[in-house]
């Protein structure tokens, strides 16, 4: 649709139709069914989130009145959030998840950016074997058991490093970044080199500022991966006091049970020794969603630019 951008440039009195002249006018039934389908799709995503948020903000009376989940807000209260943030399992799990996500993302992004740049110049020393090493990982899946045995023989069981190191580098992200870097005009890089800039300086001063979109998207992929990581924690963290939020979400909310093995006082803080109330459980769900929702709008507009150009160029 080339005319969509142009239309905003000059304010016209009547908005021009975006439909090309040769296209037949839409039928009313077609338009209506399209509208209905799209509305249903959007509702399918938004409605569960709405119900969860509203329930987490409801008082116990409102939940009792509704017979469970609350769709239309009546009494709003922050009681559930106050309870889970008064210290205890959820607070600690949020800290663990935030820490792992922050450190892991910084580490992964640094390593990936450097390698993507290091592999972005065909003809450099060992370029082909190194690139081949990266690409070959797409064909072979290492397998769960050998990976587990490796991580345990490295002594990483029950350490937070086990949540970061095994999944620190995604070959996919690396390749996406690399092909983005390769699209940067080599004249820019050559001229910087003639001016005496080293490779690290070229990367930080020229290449990265030109690659904000892809860096944002890859950074979000990593961050979301760390925040959402559940299976790594299930495998490698046997000590449930170290659990990240997704494990807590599973135990408290999905399976609706106590956290096993956690001291009675920590349990009592949150659930009063019983299965957590619906409002508290929904509040944990909201906390698990919140960081994703918070960064999503900033990164979302880069998706097509950052990912697609890298992934299926041409």
């Amino acid at each position: 649709m080339p005319d969509t951008v142009a239309a905003t440039a000059i304010p016209t009195r009547r908005r021009k139709s975006r439909r090309p002249v040769w296209e037949e006018p839409p039928t009313r039934i077609g338009q209506m069914s399209k509208g209905v389908i799209l509305t249903l799709i959007v509702l399918a995503v938004v409605f569960p989130l709405w119900v969860v948020v509203i329930t987490s903000l409801s008082t116990q009376e409102a939940i009792n009145r509704a017979g469970g989940l609350v769709v239309i807000p009546t009494d709003v209260s922050l009681q559930a959030y106050r309870e889970i943030f008064s210290g205890g399992v959820v607070t600690r799990a949020v800290m663990v998840s935030l820490g792992v996500t922050a450190i892991g993302t910084a580490f992964s992004l640094t390593v990936t950016v450097m390698a993507a740049y290091g592999l972005s110049r065909p003809g450099s020393l060992l370029h082909r074997p190194l690139l081949f090493t990266v690409l070959l990982t797409f064909l072979f899946v290492p397998g769960l058991i050998p990976t587990y045995l490796l991580v345990s023989s490295l002594g990483l069981i029950d350490s937070y490093a086990a949540l970061i190191l095994p999944t620190a580098v995604s070959a996919f992200n690396l390749v996406v970044m690399r092909s983005f870097f390769m699209g940067i005009p080599s004249e820019l890089i050559d001229s910087a080199r003639i001016d005496g800039a080293g490779e690290f300086r070229i990367l930080t001063r020229i290449v990265l500022p030109l690659s904000k979109a892809v860096t944002a998207v890859v950074g979000m992929f990593y961050a979301v991966g760390y925040w959402n990581a559940f299976f790594n924690a299930l495998l490698y963290l046997h000590d449930n006091r170290k659990w990240p939020l997704q494990m807590v979400l599973r135990t408290y909310v999905l399976d609706a049970q106590h956290m096993p093995g956690v001291g009675a006082s920590a349990d009592a803080d949150i659930v009063g020794g019983a299965v957590p109330t619906l409002a508290i459980r929904m509040a944990v769900v909201v906390i698990a969603i919140l960081p994703v929702l918070a960064i999503y709008p900033f990164v979302q507009r880069h998706f097509t630019k950052g990912v697609i150009i890298g992934a299926i160029k041409g």
Binding site: V111, T112, M114, A115, Y117, G118, L119, R121, S124, L125, L126, L130, T133, V134, T137, F140, P142, G143, P146, T147, L149, L150, L165, P166, T167, A168, V169, A171, L174, G198, E199, F200, L203
Partner: peptide, 21 residues
Amino acid sequence: PLLLMTTPAVGLLVVFHYIPV
């Protein structure tokens, strides 16, 4: 410098991908 930059990522892939294979 390019080799140095590539090493950490490739090293991690070798350790956590190739060795388990």
